Simulated assay, not measured.
Amino acid sequence: MSWLYLALAVVFEIVVGVSADKADGFKHLWWTAAALVSGAIATLFLSLALLTFDVGVGYALWTSLAEVGIVIVGVLFLSQKLTWRAMLGIAVILTGVIGLNLS
């Protein structure tokens, strides 16, 4: 169940990233509200996941997977470019997450 909580926390954290971008510095009320609400929900699910995961591992998984997810959403839906440097960074992040999870 903790993996489901972590997955939901990651999904809502991706929503935070996209909403914060669309809020444009708090200029758009609904996007700002979406960022704040989804941030609270993401934190709730992270807290539930941390009942099982060590805090260092759980938080690292949450932030890293959300970061990769935001990059993917940006490329697929927000017309952002994926450079070889970004792909290298994603590979390094995923390698670190796998290594941390195996430790």
Rank of each mutant, 00 (worst) to 15 (best):
A33H: 02
I72C: 04
L78R: 11
V55D: 03
V18I: 15
W31M: 02
L6H: 09
L50R: 08
L46H: 07
V11M: 15
F26C: 12
A42E: 06
V16C: 09
I98K: 00
V75D: 00
T63S: 09
G74K: 02
A23Y: 01
V18D: 01
I41Q: 09
K22F: 10
T52A: 15
A40H: 07
G56D: 05
L46V: 13
L4I: 15
M1K: 12
L29E: 11
W3H: 15
A35P: 04
L94H: 07
W84D: 07
I70W: 01
L8C: 14
F77V: 03
L46A: 09
G25Y: 07
V37E: 04
T83G: 11
L50V: 07
K27P: 07
L61M: 08
V18H: 04
W3E: 14
G17T: 00
T63E: 05
K27H: 13
V73E: 06
V11W: 12
Y5V: 08
W62F: 12
K81F: 06
W31D: 00
A35N: 04
A34C: 14
L36D: 02
W84M: 12
K81I: 05
A91D: 06
A60K: 03
L44V: 13
A35D: 02
G58S: 08
A34D: 03
A40M: 14
Y5H: 14
G89V: 03
L100D: 02
K22M: 11
S103N: 09
L88I: 09
V37M: 06
L29W: 14
V55T: 13
V71Q: 05
S103A: 12
V92S: 00
F12H: 10
K81R: 12
L4D: 05
V11Y: 13
N101M: 06
S47A: 15
A42P: 11
V18Y: 13
V71F: 07
I90D: 02
I90Y: 03
A33Q: 04
T83Q: 06
N101S: 09
V92R: 01
V68A: 08
L61G: 04
W31R: 01
G96K: 02
F12W: 08
V16E: 01
F45C: 09
Y5M: 13
G17F: 00
V11S: 14
T95G: 08
L6F: 12
A20I: 00
W84F: 09
